[in-house]
Write a protein that binds this DNA or RNA. Structure first.
Lengths: 150, 150
DNA sequence: TATAATGGTTACAAATGTATAACTATTATT
DNA sequence: AATAATAGTTATACATTTGTAACCATTATA
């Protein structure tokens, strides 16, 4: 019985995360107070500039009340800001601050340092493959997500 | 300022998860009582046959007490079994049951069904790329992990 | 044999994430 | 103008994960 391509992709994608995430999160946790969800929001804001609460919720597939909590905390820490949309005052737009940007960079470097040690067992060619493949997976998922939001 | 290759890989790997995991987990949660960590353990057991508690802990980068809780619950549900190692009676080996295997297949199909809908926006060529890339990333991470355990 | 080290469990506290309902403010629809 | 729909918040309960310390049984070491 041959596994379908979709099943293989599903298993691959579901397996990637737990193999690395926890070990990369630990050094981050030791040095910053930011949560995994908060970090992901910061990355989204850095890339997109400004996002509404609802868009962030869709982006993370998280219930709105949780987004409120996450943003409240990021604001406390000075990483993001709330802006009421002038065109539709129901909408709350979130932007990343200077501090958010610099601290995000710092966190990324901490994580990269940690990853670097692990990647030592790969040669240059394998590293290049991992770079290309991970970029490809990420891009495809972002593409899929962008199509969903219509 | 050019981002290093390692930083790019780190960001890619950290971003992949939240883009999909929650939306794939929801249908699973609706139909089974298994937790994400439990599911990951089942996958590891299916692939490796038998794993000790410590190895599972390393595999998931989780503290041992949590592994005990996860295994207790999988045993309650009839998915895995404990075996004391005859050569070293301190060691507890875990094996997956028939029920564990069949239910794991079922869960994988539920997740694949969910993913299938999302992947409709990709053409055959892109799908193939995603398949190859995700496999590559997973294999490389497993390879790195296997080197760590020495 | 006494001591240290290992593998695992128990107990507990705290952080994080999930889910739902009720609510306010604002905008869109009739 | 009344009603419905949307965006977001507050409140609450619960599930899952993380982290630590203390402990037992077994094995390795001195």
């Amino acid at each position: 019985m041959l596994k379908s391509k979709i099943e293989t992709i599903a298993e691959n994608l579901m397996t990637i995360h737990p193999l690395l995430f926890r070990s990369l999160s630990k050094p981050m946790k030791a040095r910053t107070s930011i949560t995994p969800a908060g970090l992901f929001v910061l990355r989204g804001l850095k890339k997109n500039g400004i996002l509404s609460m609802s868009l962030i919720g869709k982006y993370l597939s998280m219930p709105k009340p949780h987004i409120t909590v996450i943003i409240d905390r990021l604001i406390e820490e000075g990483y993001v800001e709330r802006h009421h949309d002038p065109d539709d005052r129901r909408i709350v737009n979130i932007s990343i601050t200077e501090k958010g940007l610099t601290d995000l960079d710092e966190i990324n470097q901490i994580i990269a340092e940690e990853l670097k040690v692990k990647l030592l067992v790969l040669d240059a060619d394998e590293l290049e493959q991992l770079s290309v493949s991970s970029q490809n997976v990420k891009d495809k998922l972002l593409y899929i997500l962008s199509k969903e939001k219509v």
